[in-house]
């Protein structure tokens, strides 16, 4: 084999080995490196107690309740699964926090399963469109179809 080809084969093997090692490390880190738990993860593993975690999902439609004190809000976070997490937060939520929109909350589970959040972040989705377009379908609203 010519030296040139030998180097080529050797290098391709080395790159494949490094790639395999990284893939292994990634699969080992799948749970640890997750930025947040989805409601389905919490239901499967049980709510992590006594430590701060992040949960994320969609704010369930019609679930946001503002307490009479004006700063406390309660809402439900859901995902594709039937599980829901009740969340309580005291403070100012981001502008993009709204029902049927993504949210990430950092805080702690209480014994009763209620998640008390210290911080609320809005999670944006991958859709970008002007306001006159329908959110779900990406098609023009009935207004423009009339």
């Amino acid at each position: 084999m010519k030296a040139k080809n030998q180097r080529l084969v050797l290098l391709v093997l080395a790159v494949a080995a490094v790639l395999g090692a990284v893939l292994l490390a990634m699969s080992a880190l799948k749970e640890q490196a997750a930025y947040f738990y989805a409601p389905a993860d919490v239901a499967r593993q049980g709510p992590p107690q006594d430590r701060n975690v992040r949960i994320g999902g969609m704010v369930r439609k019609g679930s946001v309740r503002r307490a009479p004190d004006g700063v406390t809000i309660d809402f439900l976070v859901g995902d594709d699964s039937p599980h829901l997490i009740p969340v309580r937060f005291k403070g100012i939520v981001p502008d993009l926090f709204r029902e049927e929109s993504g949210v990430v909350a950092e805080g702690r589970f209480q014994a009763g399963g209620l998640f008390v959040a210290d911080e609320i972040l809005a999670k944006h989705d991958e859709n970008y469109m002007p306001p006159q377009l329908d959110v779900k379908t990406g098609e023009h609203k009935s207004e423009s179809l009339k």
Binding site: M26, K30, A33, A34, Y35, F36, Y37, A38, G56, V104, L121, K123, H124, D125, E126, N127, Y128, M129, P130, L133, G138
Partner: peptide, 25 residues
């Protein structure tokens, strides 16, 4: 795609030729 991230998923796929960004943007 692999991890739950705060960052949103990809909007443009050159492989599939699809995009969830409106043409005006």
């Amino acid at each position: 795609e692999y991890w739950n991230t705060l960052h949103q998923g990809q909007s443009i796929s050159f492989l599939r030729g699809s995009s969830s960004i409106d043409a005006s943007m």
